[in-house]
Nucleic acid binder design. Structure first.
Length: 203
DNA sequence: AGCCGGATCCGCT
DNA sequence: GCGGATCCGGCTT
């Protein structure tokens, strides 16, 4: 890995706050990262790696500095930055960003009309704005087509809280594994996942 | 071979 | 605020 991305060799929980303010470049769009979540690998019930290596999550086990892209809810793709040394499956989910260049192109990729702040607000919208597809799973962030430019300096202020949308994650709600730039209008507003009813209440 | 639920988003109310 | 969309991965049978 090239020197600028050496920071990704650490576990995702350390990398996540450092990614705030970093800029992704690619496919005609540049995006400043404003919200992320850390997924801690095989020990983390919320992580795709919790039950070990599979074909889908194989990239998470590879070297840091690559994209792990997955498909969910039958229609959405989401993207992670793989962290920690090869053989260890930690990653940072990219949840929101501010388009700093190429907003017209990002907007063309969307099917619905939204405000600028909404263009990459939410992990699936973020991949649409950047033109990331499932075929980008495993892409090297140091050589493109999507590249990562680390933040010049740490974000002046970082907010933390529980991860969003993670259910059945064995009490990890208690851990502040979500990081965002406080007050930034591009940060996704979604509330914490509320578990679905399992069985009808019997009384 | 089949089932279940999901690191979500959108449109309607 | 809520439910539907829509299909794949991973586990069970």
């Amino acid at each position: 890995m090239s020197a600028p991305l050496d920071l990704l060799e650490r576990p995702s929980i350390e990398v996540a706050p450092l990614l705030l303010g970093a800029v992704l470049h690619g496919r005609g769009v540049s995006m400043r990262i404003t919200e992320v979540e850390a997924y801690l690998g095989e020990l983390d019930p919320g992580s795709h790696a919790f039950r070990g290596r599979t074909r889908r999550n194989a990239v998470m086990y590879g070297p840091p500095g690559h994209l792990y892209v997955y498909f969910t809810y039958g229609m959405h793709t989401c993207a992670n930055v793989v962290c920690s040394p090869e053989g260890t499956a930690t990653a940072v989910l990219l949840r929101a960003g501010e388009i700093v260049d190429g907003a017209d192109l990002a907007r063309e990729r969307r099917t619905t009309t939204r405000s600028d702040a909404d263009l990459a607000r939410g992990p699936a919208r973020l991949t649409v704005a950047l033109g990331i597809a499932l075929s980008d799973d495993g892409d090297d962030l140091s050589s493109g087509p999507i590249t990562l430019e680390p933040a010049g300096r740490p974000a002046p202020e970082v907010a933390t809280g529980p991860r969003t949308g993670v259910s059945g994650a064995g009490g990890t709600d208690a851990y502040p594994w979500r990081f965002w730039i406080p007050g930034d209008p591009t940060v996704s507003p979604y509330k914490k996942h509320s578990p679905k009813r399992r069985t009808p209440a019997v009384r």
